[in-house]
């Protein structure tokens, strides 16, 4: 077995400190600085969580698919575990999207679940898809075959996301509030600044969690090898 660790430019403690600072700043901005929404009032602030978590989940799935491609393409021995951990983080953030979206739907429209809410339905499909990824992965013994099957299935995900989005879009009426239009964000000033900070905070947080889980999984792999040797 080759080396089981990779050299990173940013050490983990620095990342953890950065995510702590960014998350604190984002929370302060969300609750004390950003103005109340004229239409939805205080409850609209969940938007900063919901949308940034959704984008972070997409980023995790994309990262997982990219590492899957690297595994299949370059046979990088570290990429399989990295792809798995990224998809795992994506599933955690995806579950949070379902939870925050459901809360927002209840407050705005009075129902916990709305089939006409495109993003929510899409994340439900993705949740089912990536939950099956874990079923697949834990149903095969560790080894090159498991790495290959996981990688191929993760790649299916990046095709499924736009196809499902299109499917849900053409199937349902569209009542989701659009904050990003083709003419750029539909808001300005503190709202945009708060959103950007919240987004950055969640991305850094997700990357920190990814690195923490990865180092734990690598120690696990190394221990297994030592106990077998």
């Amino acid at each position: 077995m080759e080396a089981v660790s990779r050299q990173y430019r940013v050490p983990l403690p620095a990342l953890a400190a950065a995510s702590l600072v960014l998350v604190t700043l984002a929370l302060a901005l969300i609750f004390f600085v950003a103005p109340n929404d004229a239409d939805q009032g205080f409850s609209q602030r969940i938007f900063y969580f919901h949308v940034s978590i959704a984008f972070t989940a997409y980023a995790c799935f994309a990262g997982g698919a990219w590492k899957a491609l690297v595994h299949l393409w370059k046979r990088d021995p570290l990429a399989d575990l990295e792809s798995y951990v990224a998809v795992h983080q994506g599933l955690i953030f995806g579950t949070l999207v379902l939870v925050t979206g459901s809360i927002w739907a209840k407050i705005s429209w009075g129902h916990w679940w709305l089939w006409s809410e495109d993003q929510l339905v899409l994340f439900l499909v993705l949740f089912l898809f990536y939950a099956a990824y874990f079923m697949l992965r834990f149903s095969v013994d560790p080894g090159p075959q498991r790495a290959n099957l996981s990688a191929v299935y993760a790649l299916f995900g990046v095709v499924l996301i736009p196809v499902s989005f299109l499917a849900i879009r053409i199937a349902k009426s569209f009542i989701h509030p659009i904050v990003f239009t083709r003419h750029g964000p539909n808001f300005g000033g503190w709202i945009l600044a708060t959103y950007c900070v919240a987004q950055a905070a969640l991305l850094v947080l997700a990357y920190t969690l990814y690195r923490v889980e990865l180092s734990g999984k690598r120690i696990d792999v190394r221990l297994r090898e030592l106990s077998l040797a």
Binding site: V125, L126, L128, F129, A132, M135, L136, Y153, F156, L160, V163, S164, L166, A167
Partner: peptide
């Protein structure tokens, strides 16, 4: 594995 992919 199949049903989520069959939704579209």
């Amino acid at each position: 594995l199949f049903l989520p992919l069959a939704i579209p």
